[in-house]
Design a protein around this nucleic acid. Structure first.
Lengths: 222, 222
DNA sequence: CACCGGTCTGTGACAATATCACGCGGGCGA
DNA sequence: TCGCCCGCGTGATATTGTCACAGACCGGTG
């Protein structure tokens, strides 16, 4: 794809007029980050609104004791609400974001961001709907962390992360991070699933053997 | 206060022009709800944007097992982002809201809400900053639920809820709801605090005797 | 006052999770 | 081949959640 036509990646922004497109053209720049880079961290203040062109960003929280929990991911074609929220409220970040793959993103200067919000209904709608859906995500996360059982949540994650062959190339530590628990808890639970014949585990990889049973357990959350 | 001048309660909306004020005048209505009423519940779809004039709304989630957790409160002069988020994304509510006091609120018809968003930068700013601060709240809540210890969280809540005399007129069940745990856990923990001489408990009321120690525990993990 | 019903609290037993402290073994680079 | 790091297994223990009650308190009502 031609980099200068990145706007095509955002169907919701197709309605922008010439003026707004020029603002985007002249007051933004393409950013690149390698996999593993920190996109933002707690305590920092955002300088740009970020539109992700390509790659995956993981937004997570880290506890004092080193435990982590994944809050959501940002994919190509999306914006990061954490950034816009902090821009708007003039606050510092409360979470950290990691590039899971090499990233290509557009950084829109803060003033231009404000400008676009004022000018374009399409741009507003884009930002607002991103907010709304993320908020729904966060509510679900709270629901699960506060009330959910780890076996149910793990089963759910396994089903969600497995490829067509039912394989998941993650360490127990990675899975623990996904659901916000400790590595040992995941190890023991996987062992239990294996005892039931639902999965096969080996170093750095899990294979689902009985997807139906796992899905049934995962559905026990309502 | 004269009810027709309710706009004065919202300093952030003082910048509205004549046209916008007329929209608010003609396409909104004053709503009242008694204490204890349900403002919204999971599965419902919002019909109006709500601006709270007077009273307190508690927004919380309830688990299948009946456990509850308070997410945040909405006070007079604020709007409920849960409602605007669902309005914008055309979704149903994911949480429930309870009137903790008798409420007086302004309901703005959905179309008028969209209209105002398009017309007024002040109105947009008002809605956006409400979002941003709530999102920060939600992140903090996740942090605490996922990683925090109940003794720390309870100590924190007690300090936050106590009046000038150090008294808190809540039941153990109420406190459990505040921090998203079970009633028995709160009872035992309060007993422990009492053993340390930090609080005195009696039916329906807790009195802080050693605020410094409680605050120190509350600050133990920030 | 005595009684009764509901609400609030206390408690023990147990299950589920989290934490801590290891040890084991595989793979990989020196 | 030898270490060494990383992923994983495991027991012991602390913390938290769940369940099933019992008793204590409170406001009515006869």
């Amino acid at each position: 794809m031609d980099e200068r036509n990145w706007l095509e990646l955002f169907p919701a922004l197709q309605g922008l007029g010439e003026t707004e497109r020029r603002i985007l053209d002249t007051r933004s720049r393409i950013l690149r980050l390698p996999a593993g880079a920190t996109v933002f961290a707690p305590g920092k203040t955002p300088q740009h609104m970020l539109l992700l062109l390509d790659g995956v960003v993981r937004v997570q929280q880290v506890s004092a004791g080193g435990r982590e929990i994944v809050l959501y991911r940002v994919f190509g074609g999306e914006s990061c609400i954490m950034t816009t929220a902090c821009l708007l409220a003039n606050e510092t970040y409360h979470a950290e974001a990691i590039a899971e793959t090499p990233l290509k993103a557009v950084g829109i200067a803060r003033a231009a961001f404000d400008d676009l919000l004022d000018r374009s209904a399409a741009f507003r709608r884009f930002v607002f709907t991103a907010y709304a859906t993320r908020i729904a995500d966060l509510f679900l996360t709270i629901q699960e962390v506060a009330f959910g059982r780890v076996d149910v949540r793990l089963a759910h994650k396994l089903c969600a992360l497995a490829d067509a062959g039912g394989r998941i190339a993650l360490t127990h530590q990675d899975l623990a991070r996904e659901i916000g628990t400790a590595r040992e808890v995941v190890s023991r639970q996987l062992h239990e699933f294996q005892r039931c014949g639902w999965v096969a585990v080996k170093r750095g990889e899990i294979t689902i053997r009985d997807r139906a049973s796992l899905a049934a357990l995962a559905a026990a959350r309502e």
